Amino acid sequence: QMGFTGIAVGAAMVWLRPVCEFMTFNFSMQAIDQVINSAAKTCYMSAGSIAVPVVFRGPNGASAGVAAQHSQCFAAWYGHCPGLKVVSPWSSEDAKGLLKASIRDDNPVVMLENELLYGVPFEMSEQAQSKDFVVPIGKAKIEREGTHVTLVSHSRPVGHCLEAAAVLAKEGVECEVINLRTIRPMDIEAVEASVIKTNHLVTVEGGWPQFGVGAEICARIMEGPAFNYLDAPAVRVTGADVPMPYAKILEDNCIPQVKDIIFAVKKTLNI
């Protein structure tokens, strides 16, 4: 991992545009010095004279039955680091558009895919199927309009949010579902605009709670103009704060489920 990642970073420094694939992002730990210290920092340390247009891509987050060492989400890890851009697709449209945008970008981009989504079919518009289709990095997408509560998520949990929204709609609760698409730079303006409309916020992610993506969203909302529009504290739905167990029943209880999102929405709406 350290070897081929170093080769990719070196190739990017001489203006090739390599795509470096990790079989799983858990293995990127073996190469994190190349990703953080070589790729992310070189442009800054060279006063902008050396760009590193490399893409690191591969499966991220929990899969199924692969236990603690192969089941963690690295969105918060890489999203913490200045110099990197971090994208996290949910749909086929996201995956195609963000990969093209990442390859064309002159900065190192970490593309966090999800193994369990590889076999899931998605509708694709005519526009998305055109060869010129690109999803801009740093722009979230509203997957479902709503008025009562904002659900913000990325990667596979976006689908869970949409399922929860469909269930809650039958009870008269209209959820606005935001697909972040990009972790860094985060489109906090889209979240703020939604919270100003709905007055309630629930974040959903597969990663651990401490210092996570949801924690960052909550902090940014608290520091910004949307805070005064909240009618209740923001609620986070996250993975359990433990290494991933191997047993299926324990694994299911460690990963956010649709029922957990519904519970969080009802909690924040006090219903």
Rank of each mutant, 00 (worst) to 15 (best):
F133I: 02
S125K: 06
S88A: 13
I188R: 06
V52S: 00
P157N: 10
P53D: 02
E176P: 00
A76G: 06
H80C: 05
E145M: 11
T182K: 12
S155I: 07
K141Q: 12
N114I: 03
H160K: 15
S91F: 08
V110E: 03
V120S: 14
V152D: 02
D94T: 07
A190C: 13
N107G: 02
H80N: 09
V110I: 11
S130Q: 10
L151K: 08
N60H: 05
A164S: 06
G48L: 04
A164H: 09
G65I: 07
I178G: 00
R184N: 03
F133K: 02
C175A: 08
S153F: 05
G119V: 13
E126F: 07
A75I: 06
F122T: 12
G119C: 14
V109W: 02
S125F: 05
K100S: 10
I103K: 11
H80R: 08
P89T: 07
R184K: 11
G119N: 14
V149R: 04
K170L: 10
A169E: 15
V86D: 03
R57N: 14
G97A: 06
I183S: 08
P157R: 06
R184V: 00
R57W: 10
I178C: 02
L151F: 04
I183P: 12
H154R: 10
E189T: 14
E174R: 02
P121N: 12
W77K: 10
S92H: 15
A190S: 12
V134S: 00
G79T: 03
Q69G: 02
V149T: 05
E174A: 04
E174D: 07
G83D: 10
L84S: 01
D187Y: 01
H80Y: 04
E176K: 13
R184P: 01
V110F: 02
V177D: 12
S125M: 05
G146W: 00
Q69R: 02
R156K: 15
E93A: 14
G97C: 07
N179P: 12
H148G: 03
Q129Y: 09
F56L: 05
V152R: 03
A140Q: 00
H160S: 15
E174H: 04
S91R: 06
E171I: 07
E189M: 13
E176V: 10
P89A: 09
R104K: 13
W77Q: 14
V191T: 03
P82R: 13
L162D: 10
A101C: 06
M124F: 08
A68C: 13
R184F: 01
K100G: 12
L117A: 15
V54K: 03
E93R: 11
E163G: 15
E171A: 05
K100Q: 09
